[in-house]
Simulated scan of single mutants.
Amino acid sequence: MSDLIRSLRLFVRLNEEGSFSALGRRQNLSHTTIARAIADLESYFGVRLFQRTTRRQALTADGERLLEHAVAILDQVGMAETDLAGAVAARGLVRLGVTTALGLHYAQRLADLRAQHPELTVEMFFADWRDAADDGGLDLWLAVGPEGTAGAELLGLLPRMLVASPGYLEARGAPGNVADLAAHECITYGYAARPEPWPVDGEELRVSGFLRASSSEAVLRATRGGLGIAMLPRIQVEEDLARGLLVEVLPGCTIPPIEVLVAHGFRGMRMPMRARVVMDFLVVGFPG
């Protein structure tokens, strides 16, 4: 990739991110690297691209004109890359941010992706809750909930269910209705000061228990160990249910599924083939 094309891409992304620091975190680049790319563009075209103050930066009139040209140029470059690649397999590294349950689900199916694209390399970054995009420089990442990353698209819905170990239910008894959950040990996960309520049968239940963890896998293992009742994605507990290690609690209750979104870091340009095949892998391999 030429230095000019690289600088144009950084210019477009800098305008989208709004600051050098935000772009640096997203792309894992130093402030110096980004500043040099913008300076090179300003020198090449002989114009000033940004009006900077202590509080904000904004495109100059020349910057706005270049932005329009840059987006068109990068789109054409992307089209050329796609056209010339033809049937050649995707190559290079794709950095993918996933939640624990879905990441493990996809990890079991990576052999199929490798068989189709042996020159592709995938790095998976696991993060529960809503922070899967916190690691800068991701190509693709999953977000949870309708308030996920701007520009993200719905990937699918993950059903959830309440589960507990047979040992816990034998010792404490199974809840007969939703109201009985208040008297039980409920294992939750999240990062907020207060755990999010459990949405069951149209109610927002404030539950509590001995453990709250930032990992759904930790919640699963604690539940399997008999610590209490947990609300987890069905794909994460299906195997334990089949083996009798867990039992569904209140099977007749209604729990809304988790909305899973997928976002990418190629706004303003055509997605490269390496990322496109992984995006297709996520779509095709989504549970159900």
Score class of each variant (00 low, 15 high):
83 D>W: 13
96 L>C: 03
55 R>Y: 10
103 G>T: 02
86 G>Q: 15
70 A>V: 03
58 A>N: 06
66 L>A: 08
104 L>W: 06
74 L>V: 09
89 A>E: 15
43 S>D: 14
99 T>M: 10
116 Q>F: 01
43 S>W: 05
43 S>A: 13
79 M>W: 11
58 A>W: 07
42 E>D: 02
58 A>S: 14
107 A>F: 10
48 R>C: 02
81 E>Y: 09
76 Q>E: 12
107 A>I: 08
63 G>N: 08
105 H>E: 06
87 A>Y: 00
97 G>N: 11
63 G>A: 05
96 L>N: 02
113 L>E: 02
80 A>P: 01
106 Y>I: 02
115 A>F: 00
77 V>Q: 10
115 A>W: 01
58 A>V: 14
105 H>F: 06
88 V>L: 15
65 R>S: 14
50 F>V: 07
117 H>C: 05
94 V>L: 08
96 L>K: 03
104 L>S: 11
89 A>N: 13
43 S>I: 13
100 T>H: 10
68 E>M: 12
115 A>C: 01
119 E>I: 04
58 A>K: 15
86 G>P: 01
83 D>V: 12
78 G>V: 09
117 H>L: 03
88 V>R: 15
59 L>F: 00
94 V>M: 04
66 L>K: 05
45 F>Y: 14
69 H>T: 14
85 A>M: 11
75 D>R: 15
72 A>R: 15
115 A>P: 00
94 V>K: 05
108 Q>S: 12
63 G>E: 03
47 V>E: 09
63 G>V: 09
81 E>D: 14
100 T>Q: 08
101 A>K: 04
76 Q>D: 12
100 T>P: 07
96 L>E: 00
46 G>Y: 02
54 T>P: 08
80 A>D: 11
64 E>V: 09
56 R>H: 10
81 E>C: 10
55 R>S: 13
87 A>E: 14
83 D>P: 04
47 V>F: 04
76 Q>Y: 01
108 Q>T: 12
109 R>H: 06
90 A>D: 01
58 A>R: 15
97 G>W: 04
108 Q>P: 03
106 Y>T: 02
85 A>P: 04
107 A>V: 10
82 T>I: 09
55 R>M: 13
52 R>W: 00
79 M>R: 15
76 Q>G: 04
113 L>N: 00
94 V>G: 00
43 S>C: 12
99 T>S: 07
118 P>R: 13
55 R>T: 15
45 F>K: 09
118 P>S: 11
73 I>H: 10
49 L>E: 07
78 G>W: 01
84 L>S: 09
77 V>G: 06
59 L>T: 05
